[in-house]
Amino acid sequence: MNIFRLTGDLSHLAAIIILLLKIWKTRSCAGISGKSQILFALVFTSRYLDLLTSFISLYNTTMKVIYIGCAYATVYLIYAKFKATYDGNHDTFRVEFLVVPVGGLAFLVNHDFSPLEILWTFSIYLESVAILPQLFMISKTGEAETITTHYLFFLGLYRALYLINWIWRFYFEGFFDMIAIVAGVVQTILYCDFFYLYVTKGEGRSQLSIPT
């Protein structure tokens, strides 16, 4: 474990908690893409099945359980508890255009053709594009609540920190996982446009307005 991976995990945890609290406190999921949250729940489910097969560390297990629990709690709040505030008209990204190609790619490009490994690979590829419905929804509505932009900032930051972690691990441990790195680069690039707006317009404005 290195400082970049630890701050990356904490940034990821912060994003997940910020979103969950935002929906819970405001009792509204306006501006939140339920589709992206379903994809994240799918990412964690397919990636953390190894909870049942291998024990890495207490930290690893605890974080996985928290991620999965928060992901499903968020999906529940969006589609059940605060369903009335879900903005389905703007959450229209065709997620099948993400899941199907990613599923196919996971079968073609992976480290090992075993069920757990293919599911892990699927989750890595899916995570890199899972935020697209959310970014698409914001571009359609043309705005995002400030708290939502903080959620996206920490979510984007986490994988950027992981990229530094992989550089660190390659240099000091000779470890590198090409699949995770390539997907992580794609994932972080998708946030660049948002990062630019977050930094340049985040200050002083109540709403982040993305030119549609």
Binding site: R5, H12, S54, I56, D112, E117, W120, D177
Partner: peptide, 10 residues
């Protein structure tokens, strides 16, 4: 092979 498919990262 084994070590590559034990993923220690979240």
């Amino acid at each position: 092979k084994a070590d590559e498919t034990t993923h220690d990262e979240l």
